[in-house]
């Protein structure tokens, strides 16, 4: 047996592997009965709606909500949606990617500090990570409007130190949108990362150092691989919602920072259900492809 098999099993929040020992499982009908109500809800209000979204995306776009749509298998909705909205789709993924990278860079030191350096302040720091959750998402995003505002302290300071020009500004820029996205989804990065790091035996780090590994080598060869499940879970929990978000773009951006979520929302509001649905399906399909590529690359297929 290699040493690796004796390491504690890597924990993952949403992984099926986290089930208690298979031997403890009971057979029989009780399992199905317990599962039934929830599974029914998920089927009726997740699977069935997804099917109706797909079929709506193939309706003839010449109909309207009032007159009803006819199902014509109008797949041109997709080519239309992609050719009309590819800049927004691309922009969504670029913003989400930058925000996710920023979340890793900010979230890793924080999760590491909470797991290993916080001592008796650990619980307090965890509460501080979760606490902003409880102030409404929109109210917090509006707070960023204030923080990044043209006449506020941050912009004045940046102008004074010449990071920004004399009439430079932050609000209504791509920077503001990405800042908002990073801020809003950071807890989703910190919590899974912390969950992984917390279960990491600090003696492994000491062992690495004792064997003359440099701190960088210990980080790369011990910490990072063991934190991988949390890192993968965190990047997915950050990237996926961020790419569909339109709140940050609307409140902190300008018309040229519009993301695919803004367009879907507006198309539905305008009553163009077929185009909105095909754009929605396109977003979902693109995300599935990206996630599969990423998970394969990270070598963590078993986590899904």
């Amino acid at each position: 047996m290699s040493a690796a098999t004796q390491l504690p099993p890597a924990p993952v929040a949403a992984a099926p592997a986290a089930d208690v020992g298979e031997g403890a499982g009971r057979r029989g009908w009780t399992g199905y009965l317990l599962l039934l109500p929830g599974a029914l809800w998920l089927t009726l209000f997740f699977i069935v709606p997804t099917v109706s979204l797909v079929s709506t995306s193939l309706y003839d776009p010449s109909g309207s909500l009032a007159t009803g749509y006819s199902m014509t298998g109008h797949w041109q909705n997709y080519t239309q949606a992609i050719s009309d909205y590819s800049p927004q789709i691309l922009r969504s993924f670029v913003y989400a990617l930058i925000a996710t990278v920023a979340c890793v860079l900010l979230g890793f030191p924080l999760a590491y500090a909470i797991a290993f350096k916080a001592g008796r302040w650990k619980n307090l720091m965890l509460v501080a990570v979760v606490a902003p959750f409880f102030t409404s998402f929109l109210v917090r995003t509006l707070a960023w409007q204030y923080i990044l505002g043209d006449n506020e302290a941050l912009v004045s300071l940046l102008r004074k130190v010449h990071v920004l020009g004399a009439d430079g500004y932050l609000l209504d820029t791509p920077f503001a949108v990405v800042t908002g996205l990073t801020y809003n989804f950071l807890p989703f990065m910190v919590l899974p990362l912390y969950a992984s790091l917390e279960k990491l035996d600090p003696r492994l780090l000491e062992a690495g150092a004792d064997l003359y590994a440099s701190p960088v080598a210990v980080f790369r060869r011990v910490t990072l691989p063991l934190a991988m499940p949390g890192l993968v879970a965190g990047t997915l929990l950050t990237f996926i919602p961020a790419s569909g978000d339109f709140i940050n773009s609307e409140l902190l951006g300008n018309p040229r920072t519009r993301m695919v979520g803004n367009e879907i929302q507006d198309l539905f509001a305008a009553g163009d259900y077929p185009t909105a649905s095909s754009l929605s399906i396109t977003l979902m399909a693109a995300i599935v492809v990206l996630v599969l590529l990423y998970v394969r690359r990270a070598g963590t297929e078993e986590l899904l």
């Binding site: 709606p49 996926i240 979520g261 649905s277 929605s280 399906i281 977003l283 979902m284």
Partner: peptide, 10 residues
Amino acid sequence: ATPEIVLGSS
């Protein structure tokens, strides 16, 4: 794993 906008639209 589904973005909110997709859940909402479906």
